[in-house]
Amino acid sequence: MSDAYKRHRIVGILLAILVLILVDHLNSPTFAFNMGDGRAKTTLMQRDASACAPCGAPCPSTRE
């Protein structure tokens, strides 16, 4: 049975995704912190306990 895909395309797509992730990470405060920049504000636990929805939306009762 012939493959339903071209191998180089799959490798290329995965590499492109990895590069995007790396570019994003290398420009982040987390990477800066790991590199010794103590002033960088990392957000390892991203949370807003006052939010009213998982996306961080505020409560309707607090809307002006």
């Binding site: 992730i21 994003d24 990470h25 982040s28 990392t42 991203q46 807003d48 939010a51 961080g56």
Partner: peptide, 17 residues
């Protein structure tokens, strides 16, 4: 500008659950 989206946007996707 809400806290969680702002935190996520400013940091690496690798720390966004």
């Amino acid at each position: 500008n809400w806290a969680y989206p702002a935190q996520a946007l400013s940091d690496s996707v690798l720390v966004n659950i």
